[in-house]
């Protein structure tokens, strides 16, 4: 019941999806769409579960007065406030919920994302310091591509954009294709092992 039934469910669903792929019939298409819709519903329930553990973890910090517990008040406060506003006002455009989203979450997301500009510079410096053939190739390709995408590259040498394009469409494409084929085989193998119950980590592993 605890292990065999989940393994059986997994097997049945896995085989059903494989069979479904080869059946273009409407019933088969409907089955596929229904299953994907149900996944979204289960995911929504799991958000309740996740949000519950988030509250639990931060509540524990507050009650134990762990280091930095004051910040946990901000997290729980922000979460509860957002939930309350979302359920009371709804989430349509113009509601307080969307205003908070626009003026709090969006700038925070955008600023975290923009930190990449700094990190990409430090990563480039790291690659520059690593004196191996591999790191050198990486760096050369990176520099050529970067120059190829800006007017300065063209002014430096008019052939740079063309070389950058050639790197993108040939060696780059070739290497990516090698990776994609390998990844595909790895994925299929993992999927097969899951369907057959060889890999069962999603139920905690075990025999």
């Amino acid at each position: 019941m605890r292990r065999q039934l989940p393994l059986a469910i997994c097997f049945v669903m896995g085989v059903s999806m494989v069979v479904q792929f080869f059946i273009p019939h409407r019933v088969s298409q409907e089955f596929y769409r229904t299953i994907l819709d149900w996944y979204r519903i289960v995911f929504a329930f799991s958000l309740v579960l996740g949000t519950g553990t988030l509250i639990k973890v931060h509540w524990a910090k507050i009650s134990k007065k762990s280091k930095g517990w004051q910040y946990s008040i901000i997290t729980i406060g922000g979460l509860v406030f957002m939930l309350a506003v979302g359920f009371i006002t709804g989430i349509q455009e113009g509601t307080l919920f969307m205003k908070i989203f626009e003026y709090v979450e969006v700038p925070l997301e955008a600023t975290m994302f923009s930190l990449l500009a700094f990190y990409i510079a430090s990563a480039a410096y790291r690659a520059f310091r690593a004196r191996t053939v591999e790191a050198t190739l990486l760096l050369i390709a990176a520099v050529v591509l970067m120059l190829g995408r800006i007017p300065f590259g063209y002014y430096l040498w008019h052939k740079i954009p063309g070389i950058a394009e050639w790197i993108l469409t040939n060696p780059n494409m070739a290497a990516k294709r090698g990776i994609v084929i390998g990844v595909g085989l790895g994925m299929i193998s993992t999927a097969l092992k899951i369907i057959l119950g060889i890999e069962r980590s999603y139920i905690g592993g075990g025999k």
Binding site: I41, A44, L47, V48, T75, I91, L108
Partner: peptide, 24 residues
């Protein structure tokens, strides 16, 4: 730390509401 914790709380609340209203 303040921004980070606010970010976590607000975004977790946002996604919970989003999925309730748009999926459930």
């Amino acid at each position: 730390k303040f921004a980070e914790h606010l970010f976590i709380g607000v975004s977790a609340g946002y996604w919970a509401c989003y999925y309730y209203h748009n999926v459930l």
